[in-house]
């Protein structure tokens, strides 16, 4: 789903080395095709599956995006970049882009912000109960988007749901979570943030625990209090982790689908229809517009791939701090 962690890439480079200095002479020569046969048999099944279901569809997806595909019968007419130009001038497309950006900003700010705060609390050694807190906080990691959607659909329900009841206890008249076009965006964002939080805390906590304890000691000796230590030691040392979380959260939020499908079905109207959801609607609901769906999928994919590559590059520069 997402590129690997910075830690991993450094592991790769160090562990490659012993293999590249072969201790037996014949290995230094370039392996022959005949010699390679056995290795090919080992990797063949993997590349067969990836070839048919990942590499080929990339090209096929682009080809489809250059065609208009008849809703029934699948007859194709080549239209060049027409699907793209029509998309870029369609207010509906930009509407889905806006929704995607809303989810993205909401997820990035809250899922990362809360996660870092929680991870700092969890990193303080406690004599007891630590395990219980962690269990409760990490649990959304194994929850599917469908389950998250169902659980929150109950909580948002105006009659039997709990959110508005709890809000009323503190004197707030709760909104129509799923039927107001503004609040439905918030409702979906809360659900996405909730599901993403456990993962973010795990990553942030791992990052915090790798920070050299001597830095804290030094800051303490210099008279820095807890807040100043967090601000001047933890957060700066955590930048590579935060950057990683940023990328993962941007990508995950752009791909939000299950929660939307269950909570709002993209509505009310098109209020919570993000790009992915529109791809699904165009491709699979009612009259199919496979060409247009593919064009949108391709634009979204370009964005996600771009972000992933930026992450790879950013990491190689930013990761070294000490």
């Amino acid at each position: 789903m997402t590129p690997k962690h910075s830690e991993e890439s450094s592991v790769t480079t160090t562990s490659i080395k012993p293999q590249e200095t072969p201790d037996t002479a014949p290995k230094a020569r370039k392996p022959t095709w005949r010699h390679s046969g056995k290795a090919f048999l080992f990797v063949l099944p993997t590349f067969l599956v990836l070839g048919v279901f990942v590499y080929f569809p990339i090209i096929e997806s682009f080809r489809l995006s250059l065609n208009r595909v008849a809703p029934f019968g699948g007859k194709e007419i080549f239209v060049g970049l027409n699907n793209y130009t029509r998309l870029l001038s369609s207010p509906q497309f930009w509407g889905t882009v806006k929704v995607s950006i809303f989810f993205m900003v909401g997820t990035v700010v809250f899922a990362i912000g809360f996660a870092v705060a929680i991870a700092i609390l969890l990193s303080i050694p406690l004599k007891r109960f630590s395990w219980y807190y962690r269990t409760a906080i990490f649990i959304p990691v194994v929850i599917s988007s469908a389950i998250a959607g169902v659980l929150f659909r109950l909580l948002y329900n105006p009659v039997v749901g709990f959110f508005n009841y709890w809000l009323s206890l503190i004197g707030i008249d709760g909104p129509n979570w799923l039927t107001s076009s503004t609040w439905s965006l918030v409702a979906v964002t809360i659900t996405v943030v909730w599901r993403q939080l456990g993962f973010n805390v795990i990553i942030a906590l791992a990052g915090i625990q790798q920070i050299d304890a001597q830095l804290y000691e030094a800051a303490k000796v210099d008279g820095a209090g807890a807040m100043r230590r967090i601000w001047h030691v933890t957060l700066p040392m955590l930048t590579p982790t935060l950057f990683f979380l940023l990328v993962v959260n941007v990508i995950t939020s752009l791909q939000a689908f299950g929660e939307i499908n269950i909570l709002t079905d993209g509505g009310p109207g098109k209020a919570t229809t993000n790009i992915v959801y529109q791809v699904f609607v165009d491709g699979f609901v009612g009259t199919h517009f496979v060409g247009r769906a593919s064009a949108q999928a391709f634009l979204l994919a370009l964005l996600i791939i771009g972000i992933s590559i930026a992450q790879f590059k950013g990491f190689s520069k930013k990761v070294h701090y000490q």
């Binding site: 789903m1 997402t2 590129p3 690997k4 279901f53 990942v54 080929f56 569809p57 990339i58 096929e60 997806s61 489809l64 990508i251 791909q255 992915v276 791809v279 491709g283 496979v290 769906a293 593919s294 999928a297 391709f298 979204l300 994919a301 996600i304 791939i305 992933s308 590559i309």
Partner: peptide
């Protein structure tokens, strides 16, 4: 690894 599922699922 960086190919998102959205790109491949229609084909």
């Amino acid at each position: 690894l960086i190919i998102p599922f959205e790109l491949t699922f229609i084909p």
